[in-house]
Amino acid sequence: MSKLRVQNFSISLDGYGAGTGQSRDEPLGIGGERLHEWMFPTRLWHEMTGQEGGTTGLDNRYLTEGHTGIGATIMGRNMFGPVRGPWSGDPTWSGWWGPNPPYHHPVFVLTHEPRESIPMEGGTVFHFVTDGIDSALEQAAKAADGQDVLVAGGVSTIKQYLRAGLVDIVHLPVVPILLGRGERLLDEPFPGYECTSFVSTDAATHYRLDRVRS
């Protein structure tokens, strides 16, 4: 049975998963890119960005685990792009990642505005879901074909799935910065989850939370 996972979702010491002022130039908001700096030296990141070398320690292990066994992804519209309201506002927008996004499997985007699916290079297909998180999860689980489903973000989307108690595994790298403002993940309790491990590197402390089965 496939699991629903949140993996490699970086937050600041004060609990923010994105800064303020998200835009095309600042997709993670002001200062938000610093949340991902722990990834940049790793071997997997180097492979994904066409570089040689890279570190092979714990940060690389966690990054790799987050990309392993995933058959479909769910994300919110804000993570997909900055376009608001009807898609006619920018009908050409197809995500932040260029013609070949890093997913290489079906991606289900939560939105209130209908849109036709967008096939991309490398096997990524963006599907747009207008009838809520349960429908998106049902479609994603079917598309994953036995593999796990990733909730990639952003903060609002992850919160919705956590509130519903639907996420099985949560991996949060906490990076040693303070953003002060933005989109805060840890501003409310999420009953039904317990911390099962945490380990620190020079770049981040990796927390894993698991859903408690009753």
Rank of each mutant, 00 (worst) to 15 (best):
M1S: 15
S2K: 08
K3A: 15
L13I: 14
L13N: 06
D14E: 09
A18Y: 01
Q22H: 00
D25R: 11
P27Y: 04
P27Q: 04
L35P: 05
T42P: 08
M48W: 04
G50V: 06
G53A: 11
N60H: 14
Y62M: 14
G66I: 09
T73E: 04
R77L: 03
M79D: 10
G85N: 08
G95I: 05
W96A: 13
W96Q: 12
W97H: 13
G98S: 07
N100M: 10
P101F: 07
H104D: 11
P106Q: 06
F108A: 12
L110I: 01
P114Q: 09
E116L: 05
S117E: 14
P119V: 08
P119Q: 07
M120Q: 12
G123H: 08
T124V: 11
T124W: 01
H127Y: 15
H127S: 14
V129W: 07
G132C: 12
D134C: 05
S135E: 15
L137A: 07
Q139S: 11
A141W: 00
K142N: 03
A143Q: 12
A144S: 14
D145C: 02
G146D: 07
Q147G: 04
V149R: 04
V151L: 10
V151G: 02
V155F: 06
S156H: 07
T157F: 05
I158Y: 02
Y161F: 15
L162P: 02
L162K: 03
A164I: 06
D168L: 02
I169C: 03
P173I: 13
V174D: 05
V175E: 12
P176M: 08
G182R: 04
G182F: 02
E183Y: 11
R184Q: 15
L185H: 08
L185K: 11
E188N: 11
F190P: 02
P191N: 08
F198G: 00
V199R: 12
D202T: 09
D202M: 00
A203T: 13
L209C: 15
V212M: 13
